[in-house]
């Protein structure tokens, strides 16, 4: 193991490490902790310039105020309405494409695979004008469907990369034996491969959920109003309205961050497995 385990070091070294851990963590998360405290500060504290002292009271009401007098709930709901169909769509499509690219040998296989990989890296701006135009022409501008359709298509790139590599690592014999037995191609996919890729489906689901929940650029390009905008774009426009009302901005930020954070903690193993794909040979 590298570095040397602290257990094998002197008592002082061990104690130092035990103290350093929480200290480093607090420094690392300091901006976040500041916002968390601010979100619980009564507005009177801010008015009196009490930005750093102990809050005079814990104002959980800030969290309620965020929902009152602002379409915050609608923004949050829109985020779910965009994110969930995107996860289902992108994962479903990439099970198919990943299977095709991992199992069949045909001439353009690698080229198609690298088209998905390369497309996944391009800057969003090179897609912006045509995608916006396409969405307008389909009558889907400023709609949840229009935004989700784009996300499904774009995320299919990353998901295909992931699925293809995952399926490729499965034992080949399973599929070959089934073929010799005369099992149809679709049957092989549905009954043999699909049950085996469940871990990949879980990993992709949490990752895509986080990516799409946190998307801001496409939300501002393809949607405009509180009826359709997800929370990222919503938070930005609320930030404009709540000038200097940092207790509200903070509470809103914390709320907007909650779903992906909850997702991460619930499915940590899958999340990290997905994110670190390829980090180990």
């Amino acid at each position: 193991m590298f570095p040397k385990p602290v257990q094998s070091m002197s008592r002082t070294a061990r104690l130092t490490y035990q103290v350093a851990l929480p200290v480093m963590l607090v420094i690392w998360l300091l901006p976040l902790l500041g916002v968390a405290v601010t979100s619980l500060r009564p507005s009177s504290d801010l008015a009196q310039g009490n930005y750093f002292g102990m809050p005079s009271a814990l104002a959980f009401s800030n969290y309620l105020d965020v929902f009152k007098n602002s379409p915050f709930a609608s923004y949050m709901l829109n985020s779910f309405r965009v994110t969930i169909p995107t996860v289902i769509g992108a994962v479903a499509l990439s099970c198919l494409t990943g299977y095709a690219l991992a199992v069949y040998k045909f001439r353009s296989n690698l080229i198609i695979f690298f088209m998905f990989v390369a497309g996944n890296f391009v800057p969003f701006q090179i897609l912006m004008v045509p995608v916006r135009d396409l969405t307008v022409n389909m009558g889907l501008y400023d709609s949840i469907t229009g935004l989700a359709l784009f996300h499904v298509a774009f995320q299919t790139g990353f998901c295909t990369l992931f699925m293809r590599n995952f399926i490729k690592a499965l034992p080949k014999e399973l599929i070959e034996v089934a073929r010799v037995e005369g099992v149809g191609e679709w049957q092989i996919f549905w009954h043999i491969v699909l049950p085996l890729v469940r871990p990949a489906i879980a990993a992709l689901s949490v990752l895509v959920f986080t990516f799409i929940w946190n998307d801001y650029f496409w939300a501002t390009v393809l949607t405009t109003g509180a009826d359709t905008q997800p929370i990222t774009a919503g938070l930005q426009s609320l930030n404009g309205q709540w000038v200097a009302a940092w207790h509200l901005v903070s509470a809103g930020s914390i709320l907007a961050a909650l779903p992906p954070v909850a997702m991460f903690f619930l499915m940590q193993k899958h999340f990290i497995a997905g994110l670190t794909l390829g980090a180990v040979k």
Partner: peptide, 16 residues
């Protein structure tokens, strides 16, 4: 197997 994903990806990413 490729068709649905590839069509989406072509229309929304490669062609644009």
């Amino acid at each position: 197997f490729l068709a649905p994903g590839m069509i989406m990806f072509l229309v929304y990413v490669i062609i644009p």
